[in-house]
Every structure is written in structure tokens, then in C-alpha cells.
């Protein structure tokens, strides 16, 4: 692989069309279900319940005819980040931890069994969130997700929030991501051909670090903003005059299965929330 292939990392969370039942669900259903699973995950402080939820997500992955291993491998790059968060929680949350046993105390750092349990819980909860995002993007095209969000948020339009504009903004963003990634690769190669590298500044000089990367960042922004100017003209030439008088082409349909899935995920939330799960501390 080449040092310039920036898009390579974007394979995580890509849509895999296995045409399973999960794929065929309405995007709104999947968004709502994800929301209720997230609510369920935050409604319990039990590590056991959280692990069960992860197990459930693995089950859904199988149902979507996607290898669980594939999803887990996609989460792997987040490991250092998760570790860093755990360390931060361990160092800076101890003082708020009310616990009879204290393993170790030094200054503001206080390690207690309760805290350790919460740190582990935090890490697992993050895994759930990342898992949900992967599962959603693996089984739903990005454009469907955006249409789902737009339709779900549509009621907010009535209270004056610019939901249509927000959705269109995100569609344009999605449209431009591959274009910009490609452009970035080309610019990086072109500057490298002129002997450029984008580092080399000492760590205590952020201004020089930033400056070393300007040959990449400035053209990226300038070219992209120029594209934006052209896009504005092209959209207006195609009669885009704002939301007024517009109709929508994409049509989303709920089926019985959709209602069932939404109902089940609400039920899951209530059950997880109401069950007195065992905790260690």
C-alpha cells in the first residue's frame, strides 16, 4: 500500500450489500432501534447487562449476514483511544467516586473498586456505541441514513428549524467526501514531487507544524471552496430556490416488520432499565 492512499482507512463502516432482512428495514427503523439500544446501554450500570447487549448486537450482525469478526476488526483501530479514555477516567474521576474501599490514593487520584467497575463499563459502553454506528453503516447506505434522519426530524421543521437545509447540507457533504479524499491524494503527491514532506517541525513549535502542512491544507480548502461556488451556480441553474414549493422523490415505507423491530427495541430498553441487574460494587 502506498503512503498516499488516504481513502484506505475509510473502509471501516462501509456499506456491505448482503441484502439481509436487516438491510431491508426502513432506515428510520434502524436509527430508532439504534437510539433505543443506546438508551438501554446508558440506563444500566451493570457490566453484565452491557456485555449481554454486546452479545445481542453480535446476534444482529449475524442476522445481517455480516461476519462478527469483520465488525470487530473494524473497531480495533479505536483501541488506543479507548485505552486513553479509560486512563483519563481512572485518573480524573476518582474523587467523585463514593466507595468504602479505597485501593490506592495519591493527591487527587483515588482508585476504588467502584471506579474500576465504572471505567470498564465506560469502555464497554463506548464499544456499544461504535458497534451501533458500524452496524448501521454496514447495513444502510449513507444516503438512506440521511433520508431517514431528514424524515424523522421533519416535525421540527414546523417549529422553524431548517431540517431540509440541514439534510441537503449533509447530502452534499457525503457527495464531496470521496472527491476531497481523491483531491487530497493528488495534492500530497504533487507536493511530494516537489520535495515536500508534511512534518519535520519540532514538537514544541505548533506554528511550524501547522505551516509544514499548509501546502496540503490550503489548496484543499481553496479548491473545495471553488467547487462549492460552482455547485451553487449549478444548483440554482436547476431551479433550486429554497425549500418552498419543493417535493421529495425518495419515499420511505414502514412495513409490519419495521413496527415490530421498533416495538422490540423499546421493550428492550424498558426491560434493561427496569431489571435489577447485579453489580459488583
Amino acid at each position: 500500500m502506498s503512503e498516499f492512499e488516504y481513502l484506505r482507512n475509510v473502509t471501516i463502516g462501509q456499506y456491505i450489500p448482503t441484502e439481509s432482512t436487516v438491510h431491508r428495514l426502513d432506515p428510520r427503523t434502524k436509527l430508532l432501534a439504534a437510539l433505543f439500544v443506546a438508551l438501554a446501554a446508558t440506563s444500566t450500570r451493570s457490566v453484565l447487562a452491557t456485555l449481554l447487549l454486546i452479545g445481542l448486537l453480535m446476534g444482529v450482525t449475524r442476522l445481517a449476514r455480516i461476519e462478527v469478526r469483520y465488525v470487530l476488526r473494524g473497531l480495533l483501530p479505536a483501541a488506543p483511544f479507548v485505552a486513553a479514555l479509560m486512563l483519563m477516567q481512572l485518573l480524573f474521576q476518582g474523587r467523585f467516586s463514593v466507595c468504602e474501599t479505597v485501593y490506592w490514593e495519591w493527591g487527587f487520584v483515588r482508585i476504588t473498586p467502584c471506579l474500576i467497575e465504572l471505567v470498564v463499563l465506560g469502555a464497554l459502553r463506548l464499544v456499544i456505541f461504535l458497534f451501533l454506528v458500524s452496524l448501521l453503516t454496514l447495513t444502510t447506505t449513507a444516503s438512506h441514513i440521511l433520508h431517514g434522519i431528514e424524515t424523522l426530524l421533519a416535525p421540527l421543521q414546523r417549529i422553524g428549524l431548517p431540517v431540509h437545509e440541514f439534510a441537503l447540507t449533509n447530502i452534499i457533504a457525503l457527495r464531496f467526501i470521496p472527491i476531497i479524499a481523491e483531491e487530497m491524494e493528488r495534492i500530497a503527491k504533487a507536493q511530494a514531487s516537489r520535495g515536500g514532506d508534511f512534518g519535520g517541525a519540532p514538537w514544541w513549535r505548533p506554528d511550524r507544524m501547522a505551516r509544514a502542512r499548509l501546502p496540503l491544507i490550503v489548496p484543499l480548502f481553496v479548491n473545495t471552496l471553488r467547487r462549492a461556488e460552482e455547485m451553487v451556480v449549478a444548483m440554482e441553474a436547476r431551479c433550486y430556490l429554497g425549500r418552498k414549493g419543493r417535493t421529495k422523490f425518495v419515499d420511505l415505507h414502514f412495513t409490519g416488520l419495521d413496527w415490530l423491530v421498533i416495538g422490540l427495541s423499546v421493550l428492550l430498553w424498558v426491560v434493561v432499565w427496569r431489571t435489577p441487574w447485579p453489580t459488583f460494587t
Binding site: R175, E230, A234, Y240, G245, T247, F249
Partner: peptide
């Protein structure tokens, strides 16, 4: 590239008629 708004071909073609 600077004229195609949507991320699916048919949705982009629909942009004008929607307007």
C-alpha cells in the same frame, strides 16, 4: 463533479423535478 448534488444517480436526476 461540481454539479452532481446527490450520492445516488437517480436521486441526483430527481433534484431538478423536486425543485
Amino acid at each position: 463533479d461540481n454539479q452532481i448534488v446527490a450520492t445516488i444517480v437517480e436521486e441526483d436526476v430527481a433534484f431538478g423535478p423536486e425543485n
